[in-house]
Nucleic acid binder design. Structure first.
Lengths: 139, 139
DNA sequence: TTAGTTGCAAAGGCTTTGCACGCGC
DNA sequence: GCGCGTGCAAAGCCTTTGCAACTAA
């Protein structure tokens, strides 16, 4: 599916700005708003507009807002519907994509539901990458 | 263990401000910095100091910074070492604690490790609470 | 045509910084 | 007494808001 089609199917108007943002995000996932803004600088889009677009796309379910510990700003990625998760180095912040956990995953089926209807479970792995571990091994 | 002992064991100096913050956090978990600031208002602590204290406590591992989707500010909770998770209503933001079915951390094992050493897996359940679902059922 | 989008500037809100004072050890 | 911790004010930074101009449908 091309970028325009994605927007149209989501009920959003097709604009050059939205296309640019979506393509920039597809090119480099887990980007922040200002990084996307820099990536589409050629398209002459204002930073507040990037935020507006990201909000619209997230609401429409086209992209997904990723919230990570130790992240001061929101990151975004194109929604791929594969229910993947994230592994991040607590030292350097390096971020990797992890497929859904294999085997028995009791944690993904909570013992209590607190009267709430479960929609989705997202997992964040905190880890230390090899480079950072060589510099100073973690406990 | 009393509050002073926790601080001492963490290698932190015992001050009335840190005790106040820690007790406020124990009393009402998942508080934001300004909420804690309000709770300890009687102790005459400045908001920047609350941030400094929370940062120190988090670095020392006494408390834990909880990052949630749709949360514009950081929440904190006392580290209990029970590797619990969180379930949040995507509508009203109501937050519940979910026990981890597995005792050991990490409770989940990713399919790939990307050359990183795993420290911890945290799960966030996105859900809809009964009240919000009655107002407008989610898909 | 017209309703949704964008641009721009400004404001908003949480968090961090810098330095002087104060207090735990 | 020494050095860490705190208070205060100011700055920083990301994000949101408001309104006029524009453009996709």
């Amino acid at each position: 599916m091309d970028t325009s089609g994605i927007l149209r199917d989501a009920g959003l108007r097709v604009t050059v700005q939205r296309i640019a943002v979506l393509q920039a995000l597809a090119l480099s996932p887990h980007s922040s708003a200002d990084r996307i803004h820099a990536a589409v600088a050629g398209a002459d889009i204002a930073l507040p507009t990037v935020h507006a677009i990201l909000g619209d796309l997230a609401t429409a379910g086209v992209i997904r807002r990723v919230s990570l510990p130790d992240a001061d700003r929101a990151l975004f990625e194109v929604e791929r519907g594969d229910n993947h998760h994230h592994m991040q180095c607590v030292r350097c912040g390096r971020l990797e994509v992890v497929s859904c956990a294999v085997g028995a995953s009791p944690c993904l089926h909570p013992a209590e539901d607190h009267g709430m209807r479960l929609l989705e479970a997202s997992v964040t792995y905190r880890a230390i990458c090899r480079d950072c571990d060589e510099v100073r091994p973690a406990p």
